[in-house]
Write a protein that binds this DNA or RNA. Sequence first.
DNA 1: CTATTGTGGTCTATAAATGGATCATTTAGA
DNA 2: TCTAAATGATCCATTTATAGACCACAATAG
Lengths: 112, 112
Amino acid sequence: MAKAANRTYSLYTREAVELLAVMIREARLERKLPAKELAERAGISRGLLQRIEKGDPNCSLGTVFEVAYLLGISLFNSDERALASNLAMSKEKLSLLPKMARKPQRGVDDDF
Amino acid sequence: MAKAANRTYSLYTREAVELLAVMIREARLERKLPAKELAERAGISRGLLQRIEKGDPNCSLGTVFEVAYLLGISLFNSDERALASNLAMSKEKLSLLPKMARKPQRGVDDDF
DNA sequence: CTATTGTGGTCTATAAATGGATCATTTAGA
DNA sequence: TCTAAATGATCCATTTATAGACCACAATAG
């Protein structure tokens, strides 16, 4: 009972995925690093790296981020230290929020 | 002949994935949006949204980005227009790069 | 306090992603 | 130019992700 992935994505999502893909390919080529080598270092197959660089949205988040990391591409405009710091702050903030999202019984927040 | 996903990720990757997860959960709770509703709007199951908010790296890039988008979380610190612009510039730059990464036969670039 | 709703976990069947191999083609370097 | 190497594409076998249902529990609103 799974009929997934006829998914439709927003333009924003498609562009974000493609941007990341292009940045990865750029960085790899700038470093003159063959796909085969990068794939090995990332622990993935060359085929998967191809899909990533092609902007396939159906690749796992972790592998794509890892490849980006190996190429020195900074996610969220954060280097390693800033990222850890952001994460700590976000966790802190999250802990202060109500743990459930219960909607008030009639329409306060439906601004989508 | 596929034995994938005993994957190991760098700390940076793990933190980046978790940061995105926490930001998503934060944004959803701030909006008082039940998981069920957000999942419906994203066209995914509630279980998958749970994994996303938990920081599971094995979720597809597209779905995670789409959920983030639905919550107004900006990827790459770029709104919709900036993103399109970045993408165009990156494509331009990519087109100027050599199309293959051929390593010079002896060690110029192995600074990893 | 209580009723109600959201959430986290588990289970199963199915769809999809991935690895690994192969082949043809393109490209960069000598 | 020559040629070794990189890329792009396809195939198949297997692993994995996902949907969808269910349950027990937690937490919020009243």
